[in-house]
Design a binder for these strands. Structure first.
Lengths: 190, 190
DNA sequence: AAGGTGGTAGACCGATCGGTTTCCCCGCTT
DNA sequence: AAGCGGGGAAACCGATCGGTCTACCACCTT
C-alpha cells in the first residue's frame, strides 16, 4: 500500500534518530540509531549517505513541529505581540519540566559538533535564526524602541534557560517569564 | 631540582589537557591529549586513573584562574555591587571576542557529558554554583528586591551569551551589559 | 509453483577508542 | 664504571567506531 512507501519509512527512521540523538547525544553510534529505528544498517545507508546526513535530516525533520510548538498559529495572530512572545517562554518552561528534557536540540548540536560547517550545524543555525526573526517581528509590531536588541536579548534568555535547565542546574518555574517581562517593559514595548 | 617534581609535571599536563579539551571537545582522544602535553600515555596514566579523571582535574585546575578573571579582587571590594556584576559581563564580552572562544568550558562540559554523575560534571556544577553565589551576594548588597531571582536571571544571561557566542551565532558587543543593566534596574538594585 | 525483489541480520573491514605493557634508553647514584 | 630506575615510543589489547557486503528469507508477480 502507499502508506508504507519510501517517504514514510524515511520519516520513521528520522523520527527515531532524532529522539535517539537527543537522548544520547550526537556521538551515539550508528548501530544504536538503527536499533531504535527497527531497521538494519543496510537499509539506513540506502536512504542516507552518512551518519552526518542522518543527523542533519533528523534535525530538519523536527523543525516544523518545533516551531509550531513554540508559535501555535503561524498566520492566525492570536493575542498581542507581547503575549505571543511570552507564550514561547511558557512553552519552554513547560517542556523543561519534563524529566527527559535535555535542552534545545539545536543548541546542543551546535555545541557538541563544534564544526560550523557540519550540515547539522547549518540546520541548527537556521532554527535559531527563525526564532530570532520571530522575536524581532513581534518586537517591531509591539513598538519596541530597538527591536533587534530586544530580540537578541530574548534569544539570550531562551538559550541560557534551555541550556541550564537541560543541564539540570536550573528549574525555570516562572524564571524566564519574569525575566522576559522585565526586558519587554524595559524595551518600551506595549 | 624541586621545581620539576611530581606536582608541577601534573599541573603542566592538566593545563595542556584543559586547553585541548576546550579546543577539541571532551570527546578528544587520549593520544591527542598526551601529544599536546608532550608526555607519553604511560606517564599520564601513572598520574591519573582514567581520561575522565584527567578531564575533571583539568577543569578543577582552571577554576581559580577562571574565577579570578571574572571577579578580580576576591576580598578587596572594588566598586559598587552593580559595578562588580557588570564587570563580570564586560570580561565575558571581551573573552567572547577572541577568535578561539568556544563558550564557557564548564557549561560545555555539562552539555557534552550528559551524565550528571560524571566527575567533571560535578566540578562544572561547582563553577556555576560559585558564580550564582557571587551574583546573589552582590544582589543582596545592592538591595535587590529578590536577590535570588536576580542572580538566577543573571546566570541565564551569562550562560545564554556564552553558549551563543561560543557557537558563533551571536556577537555580544554590549549586548549582555545592556541586558544586565535592564535587569538590575528592574530589580530595584541601586 | 517458479522466479524475482527488497529488506533483514549480522559478518566483516580498517580505523580508532581507552587503557596496558613491553622494550629500550638516559641520567642518576655509589 | 656499574647498576638501577623512571619515562618515552610504540606495540598491543579488546571494544567500538562508521560504513560495506554477503547470505538468507519472506513476499509478490506471473
Amino acid at each position: 500500500m502507499a502508506t508504507t512507501d519510501k517517504a514514510s519509512t524515511r520519516d520513521r527512521q528520522l523520527d527515531a534518530a532524532a529522539e535517539t540523538f537527543y537522548r544520547e547525544g550526537v556521538s551515539v553510534g550508528v548501530e544504536a540509531l538503527c536499533r531504535s529505528a527497527g531497521v538494519s544498517k543496510r537499509s539506513m545507508y540506502q536512504l542516507f549517505a552518512s551518519k552526518d546526513e542522518v543527523l542533519a535530516a533528523s534535525l530538519a525533520r523536527r523543525l516544523p513541529e518545533y516551531e509550531a510548538r513554540l508559535v501555535p498559529g503561524p498566520q492566525e495572530e492570536t493575542g498581542t505581540p507581547r503575549e505571543r512572545i511570552l507564550h514561547v517562554f511558557e512553552r519552554l518552561e513547560k517542556a523543561s519540566a519534563e524529566p527527559a528534557y535535555q535542552g534545545c536540540p539545536y543548541l546542543a548540536a551546535l555545541v557538541e559538533l563544534k564544526d560550523p560547517g557540519h550540515p547539522a550545524s547549518v540546520v541548527a543555525r537556521g532554527a535559531k535564526e527563525w526564532l530570532l526573526g520571530f522575536f524581532r517581528a513581534r518586537a517591531e509590531e509591539g513598538g519596541a524602541r530597538d527591536a533587534e536588541l530586544l530580540a537578541r536579548q530574548l534569544m539570550l534568555v531562551f538559550d541560557g534557560a534551555g541550556a541550564r535547565a537541560g543541564a539540570g542546574i536550573e528549574t525555570l518555574d516562572g524564571l524566564t517569564t519574569a525575566t522576559v517581562t522585565a526586558l519587554l517593559d524595559a524595551s518600551g514595548m506595549r
